[in-house]
């Protein structure tokens, strides 16, 4: 009945988020902050050019989906996600 999060150090998970996004969007600049399962992302990439907010955010969510799967996922919530073009 309690919430279980993987207690990996916050910095490690931010680095994992950044690496996953860079794999999908190699030109991206990624700011990942947070901890305790809750993270905030600001992603800047040319991949978002001409795309709406939904499709832009889907690109990012798609890249980090493996970190958000299941009830004990290391990433419990993305508190805020912003996508920008350079």
């Amino acid at each position: 009945m309690s919430h279980h999060h993987h207690d990996a150090p916050a910095g490690d998970m931010c680095a994992a988020l950044r690496a996953s996004i860079l794999t999908a969007l190699p030109d991206a600049q990624v700011e990942a902050t947070g901890g305790g399962g809750h993270y905030t992302l600001v992603v800047t990439s040319t991949a978002f050019a001409g795309k709406g907010m939904v499709d832009s955010q889907r690109l990012v969510y798609g890249a980090i989906a493996h970190l958000m799967k299941g009830d004990n996922a290391p990433v419990h919530a993305i508190d805020s996600l912003r996508t920008r073009t350079p």
Binding site: Q57, R58, Y61, G62, A65, M68, I78
Partner: peptide, 9 residues
């Protein structure tokens, strides 16, 4: 819904 919407949250 996560698949239907292609949205994880």
């Amino acid at each position: 819904l996560k698949d239907f919407s292609e949205w994880p949250t």
